[in-house]
């Protein structure tokens, strides 16, 4: 029990003191747009085996949540805001992403090749 408390506390501290600076090396940036369930592009090609960044803009009027179970990412984005999500090197394949706040909208796909 005490260990669990300690784990939570450690994570909280890590959150507070974690450095905010990005990696020194330049990573390619790919742009995605979410607008009330519309995802543009619905299919995005990225190079396999290389880390990259996704610049996700919420162009809609509702809050969006960029989510991907395949990429293990979740990021809430306010209307008219832009967020950057770092993705580690991917094996070749298809990775779905979707707006968690728009469950009826079709998912988009990131294709690593």
């Amino acid at each position: 029990m005490r260990n669990r408390h300690r784990l939570a506390l450690a994570a909280l501290l890590a959150l507070l003191v974690a450095p905010t600076a990005g990696k020194a090396e330049e990573q390619p940036v790919f742009k995605l747009e979410m607008a009330d369930g519309r995802l543009t592009p619905s299919q995005l090609s990225v190079p396999a085996g290389k880390p990259f960044k996704l610049q996700v803009t919420n162009a809609g009027t509702a809050t969006a949540e960029f989510e991907s179970k395949d990429l293990h990412k979740e990021k809430v984005i306010a209307p008219r805001a832009t967020a950057v999500v770092s993705i580690k090197a991917l094996a070749a394949g298809r990775y779905d992403y979707f707006d968690e706040m728009q469950p009826k909208a079709p998912a988009g796909v990131i294709v690593a090749e």
């Binding site: 994570a11 890590a14 959150l15 974690a18 450095p19 905010t20 979740e74 306010a78």
Partner: peptide, 22 residues
Amino acid sequence: TVFDDTLSEDGRQMFQTAMVLV
């Protein structure tokens, strides 16, 4: 919302991961 830009991505992930595991 307010400190969105000052929180590191990994820090946020650590916090969320610790929360779900606990």
